[in-house]
């Protein structure tokens, strides 16, 4: 190759110098890549905290705190009691929707121990050394419906309270569904229509 004559070589202009080093600012842009927005200094549910001594960002409420609108001491809806006695009536209208809602709650929260039919042979009872009483006896069939609300709210014997998992309205729905379950297991076959008897599969 022949050397290029000096006169043909172009002198570097300011613009060409700028163009040659245009990639430099890009480095500054890349240095800006970090994850501050991805992990923002704020608390979201269950996030640990190094501010509070117990390491929790979700603060346990001060003891005996009652959230606004979540409790009224003299309301059967929230206590299961009227004038100190277990409520005898549902504090809401009994509808098919309420029973359906009660069924989904019952099957999610109660059936593991009490069984789908309420006879105490749920899968947890089956796996453990646990005797779960049946819901189908005369005492439980005749007890005030507020009793079920009370047991779900406060627990009984070895059953824990389900108050923090089942809101009051849903507890009543479960209580209503328990009544339906009890009826389903204790109905005189003669009172059924022929069609309903056919569904039973018996003679």
């Amino acid at each position: 190759m022949q050397p290029v004559a000096p006169s043909l070589r172009r002198k570097p202009t300011v613009m060409s110098l700028l163009a040659r080093f245009a990639w430099l600012p890009l480095c500054f842009v890349l240095v800006g890549c970090h994850i501050d927005m991805y992990d923002q200094p704020k608390y979201r549910p269950n996030r640990p905290s190094d501010f509070f001594e117990d390491g929790r960002s979700m603060r346990p409420p001060v003891e005996n705190t009652v959230a606004m609108g979540s409790f009224e001491a003299d309301s059967a809806l929230f206590t299961g009691r009227l004038n100190g006695e277990l409520a005898v009536d549902l504090p809401m209208e009994l509808t098919a929707d309420l029973l359906e809602r009660g069924q989904t709650r019952y099957e999610a929260f109660c059936a593991p121990c009490h069984g789908l039919a309420g006879d105490g042979n749920g899968v947890i009872a089956y796996r453990g050394p646990l005797q779960v009483p049946t819901l189908h006896n005369d005492r439980l069939r005749t007890v005030a419906i507020g009793y079920y609300f009370d047991v779900i709210t406060n627990g009984i014997n070895r059953m824990y309270s389900y108050a923090h998992r089942i809101p009051p309205e849903d507890r009543w729905a479960v209580a209503a569904y328990v009544r339906a379950l009890q009826l389903s297991q204790n109905v005189d076959a003669d009172t059924l229509t022929a069609e309903e008897r056919a569904l039973l599969g018996g003679p």
Binding site: R44, P45, N46, P112, C113, I124, R127, G128, P129, L130, R158, M159, Y160, Y162, H164, R165
Partner: peptide, 17 residues
């Protein structure tokens, strides 16, 4: 938030089995 169960929830069965 779907809720990570509290220890109480685990224990409602595992206090028995």
């Amino acid at each position: 938030h779907a809720g990570i169960p509290s220890t109480d929830t685990c224990m409602s069965c595992h206090s028995q089995i």
